[in-house]
Design a protein around this nucleic acid. Structure first.
Length: 646
RNA sequence: GCCGAUGUAGCUCAGUGGUAGAGCAACGGUUUCGUAAACCGUAGGCCUCGGGUUCAAAUCCCGACAUCGGCUCCA
């Protein structure tokens, strides 16, 4: 007997097909051969399945073709399988582990005898291209977990067996396997119909990676790759990567003479004159902004006795990241450079009797911090050992948390809008090991979440990712290559007030325990500047540009007027220079553009005559000649610092 | 810290066992020029550092240091 199932197409039409019809056949016969050819996978009631999946129940169907955004995920995941099959052919004895899709590509982790060399990668890539050309079909099958474990153990694949055992422990009744050619892998799917649908694959990098990301586990060998619908897309992607590298803040820092590093001070930047200007503007901008938002700036010591860190808990939890300082040579280090400002602020809070009338009490501190990051983790300005934060600690009563967080989110949002930067927010909740009571945590999480929801900012929730002392909100910004870095943070802390025995006198005359909010908006100036530079590709807005105006003369005959213009600009606070070199005008313009100076003011005989300038704005063609007074108006308006509403 | 790659002039890079190179920048000179590179010349190096192999090392080997990519994305 033949039963029928009812399949609903995206446009609403219902089709009846025999129970057990494969999707690919359904599409070919009921929709069209063209779609059947273009199809890669399908969604049944939103669930991703292969085209070979059999229709056994009424469902709404959606066909995913090459054009769909998801297509790239399927192509990449299928490409990862091909990589693994080629690696196992070329390097017998290598075990497979996992091979997920990531942003712009995929990777596959192998338990290999030896790391893969760049030459190995070339051989593997050649093997991949053979498989793509052969257009081998992917086929799906299922097994009972116990059988699958035996199957993979029989092939010496102990990582796969471990994964299946975990799936079984979670209650999986069957696991799926995918095969192309004679190579088979445990896989959730779906896959594209055949390897020929993978247009272009390139292996991009190798690296060591710990099994399950834990450094106590065995180190696996990872191969990164990218895959696209066709060669043009791949070429376009590689071109984008090349372009992105030009925005790398390390490149820009060198080209624009902002900062440099020396191997005698790994992870600590030297700020060159132009970089120091940028750093100081941001620092002062934040100082004034926070002053306007009820913060009090403080300055606290750099070096502290270890007793402070014993009290705060850093000595136990954070000592390996602290630079210890010995007071007398040969004696055990009793001091440390501070890795964070919070403990010193707690000392300040506790240094006098506090009243509820002072709350929320906000200490802002841009003090220099040192953290002994692992050597391998250092990189540019985004991962340093010495830095300054726009750090603050807010002491308040628990009832004030909601308002304060809401205010903070508004402030953060406004600050980032000034720089035209977009961020992603993450909300992290109670970890498994936490301090305090579940009840306070519930209240704290509710307050954070409520403020976050009210703010209208989109955010992701990271359950269990909170600090052990409280939940937090983190804001991340992506660099030119799409890597995300945490900048702003808001963390609630119930523990520190306990450890430092902080109290204030309430309206009722009794002592109360405050709550602390740790928060930063830029995060560290170093990291913020890195992302700021990449965001603007080095072409900073006028108010931030270290050199705002460069007066360029056509010949040496205009040097006197050029200097007069420069001095007049400097007199009104504009950072101006003169290029009075013997270069031709074209060369001077080029240099000004390469230095990304917002305005090049051309002065020739005509301008001298008219007491005028001919401004050329960065990245544009020439502006018309104008009286110097007129240019003053333009530059004054652009050089003005943004104000953040209170 | 771990895996891999890299380290040559201020910058970008060539040079694979036999006397250290180019372009740009710098410096000197000529040119006085109207919106992205005028011309000629000069100088610049412990080839990251320390060991080793060799008649001979930037080059081969070992180690240190630094830099770069990665070490959360879970069949």
């Amino acid at each position: 007997m033949s039963r029928e199932v009812s399949i609903k197409l995206p446009d609403g039409t219902l089709k009846q097909v025999a129970h057990g019809t494969r999707i690919i056949d359904f599409v070919r016969t009921q929709i069209g051969a063209g779609l059947a050819k273009a199809a890669l996978a399908a969604k049944l009631d939103g669930k991703e399945v292969d085209l070979s999946h059999e229709l056994t129940a009424d469902a709404a169907i959606e066909i995913i073709t090459l054009k769909a955004p998801e297509a790239l995920d399927y192509i990449r995941h299928s490409a990862a399988h091909v990589v693994a099959s080629v690696v196992q052919r070329l390097f017998p004895g290598t075990q497979v582990t996992i091979g997920p899709v990531i942003e712009d590509g995929f990777y596959y982790d192998f338990a290999a005898e030896k790391p893969f060399t760049p030459e190995d990668l070339e051989r593997i890539e050649a093997g991949i291209n053979e498989v793509l050309a052969a257009d081998v079909a992917f086929t799906r099958s299922e097994m009972k977990p116990a059988d699958a474990v035996a199957f993979f153990l029989g092939k010496g694949e102990k990582y796969k067996a471990e994964i299946i055992e975990e799936l079984a422990a979670k209650g999986a009744e069957t696991v799926s396997l995918y095969q192309h050619g004679d190579w088979i892998d445990l896989c959730r799917g779906p896959h594209i119909p055949s390897t020929g649908k993978i247009g272009a694959v390139k292996l991009t990098a190798t690296s060591g990676a710990y099994w399950r990301g834990d450094h106590r586990n065995q180190m696996l060998q990872r191969i990164y790759g990218t895959a696209w619908r066709n060669k043009d897309e791949l070429a376009a992607y590689l071109h984008r990567q090349e372009e992105a590298k030009k925005r790398d803040h390390r490149r820009l820092g060198k080209d624009l003479e902002l900062f440099t590093f020396h191997k005698y001070a790994p992870g600590a930047a030297f700020w060159l004159p132009k970089g120091a200007i940028l750093y100081n503007i941001l620092s002062q901008f934040m100082r004034e902004t926070l002053l306007g938002h009820g913060y009090d700036e403080v300055k606290t010591p750099l070096i502290f006795n270890k007793d402070l860190w014993l009290t705060s808990g850093h000595w136990d939890k954070y000592r390996e990241n602290m630079f210890l300082v010995e007071e007398k040579e040969g004696e055990p280090a009793e001091f440390s450079l501070k890795p964070m400002n919070c403990p010193s602020h707690h000392l300040l809070f506790g240094s006098t009797r506090r009243s509820y009338r002072e709350l929320p009490l906000r200490f802002h501190d841009q003090g220099v911090l040192h953290r002994n990051e692992e050597r391998g983790a250092l990189g540019g300005l985004t991962r340093v050992r010495q830095f300054q934060q726009d750090d603050a600690h807010i002491y308040l009563a628990e009832s004030m948390i909601g308002d304060e967080i809401a205010r903070l989110l508004t402030l953060i949002d406004r600050v980032y809008k000034v720089f035209d930067m977009t961020f992603t927010a993450g909300y992290s909740t109670r970890p498994e090991k936490f301090l305090g009571t579940a009840e306070t945590w519930d209240r704290a999480e509710a307050a954070l979440k409520q403020a976050l929801d009210a703010s209208g900012l989109p955010y992701t929730t990271n359950p269990g990712d909170g600090a052990f002392y409280g939940p937090k909100i983190d804001l991340a910004v992506a660099d030119s290559l799409g890597r995300k870095f945490q900048l702003a943070t808001i963390q609630l802390d119930y523990l520190a007030p306990e450890r430092f025995d902080l109290t204030y006198i309430g309206e009722d005359g009794a002592q109360h325990r405050p709550v602390v909010i740790h928060r930063a908006i830029f995060g560290s100036f170093e990291r913020f500047i890195a992302l700021l530079l990449e965001h603007y590709a080095g072409a900073l807005p006028t108010w931030l540009a270290p050199e705002q105006v460069r007066v360029v003369t056509v010949t040496e005959n205009q040097i006197a007027w050029a200097r007069e213009v420069m001095l007049a600009l400097r007199a009104r606070g504009v950072r101006a220079t003169v290029d009075d070199s013997k270069d031709k005008l074209g060369a001077k313009i080029r240099l000004a553009q390469l230095a990304k100076v917002p305005f090049a003011l051309v002065v020739g005989d005509k301008e001298v005559e008219a007491k005028a300038v001919a401004p050329r704005r960065f990245g544009t063609e020439d502006l018309k000649q104008m009286p110097l007074e007129r240019f003053f108006e333009i530059i004054d308006a652009e050089a003005r610092w943004p104000r953040i509403e209170t």
